[in-house]
């Protein structure tokens, strides 16, 4: 639950999406649904996740599938935390 809330807050702050972050559910699409998530925002988001959770994300770990839904992003973070 904490991870989900933390990821939500990171999305809110990084993408500056305000209250729209509160509406994010596990199956909410990110790609194509949040226009703010562009190529530069992805990098800023990854950096923010690394700093917040103190994890290292390799380039080969991420792909479009990582950002497909809010749930897929949270799952990705939890997998990295369990490594």
């Amino acid at each position: 639950m904490t991870t989900i809330n933390d990821v939500k807050n990171i999305l809110r702050d990084t993408l500056q999406i305000g209250d729209r972050a509160d509406e994010l559910q596990e199956d909410t699409p990110l790609l194509g649904n949040i226009p703010e998530l562009d190529s530069m925002a992805v990098a800023m988001l990854i950096t923010a996740v690394e700093e917040h959770f103190d994890i290292f994300i390799d380039d080969d770990d991420i792909s479009a599938e990582t950002f497909e839904t809010f749930g897929s992003l949270c799952n990705f973070v939890e997998e990295k935390l369990s490594e």
Binding site: L31, S39, M40, V42, A43, M44, I46, D59, I62, S63, A64, T66, F67
Partner: peptide, 16 residues
């Protein structure tokens, strides 16, 4: 320009 398969990666941030 970002090649489609690299749009959700660090390619552009590294480039910039």
């Amino acid at each position: 320009h970002i090649e489609p398969e690299y749009r959700m990666t660090r390619a552009f941030s590294n480039l910039w």
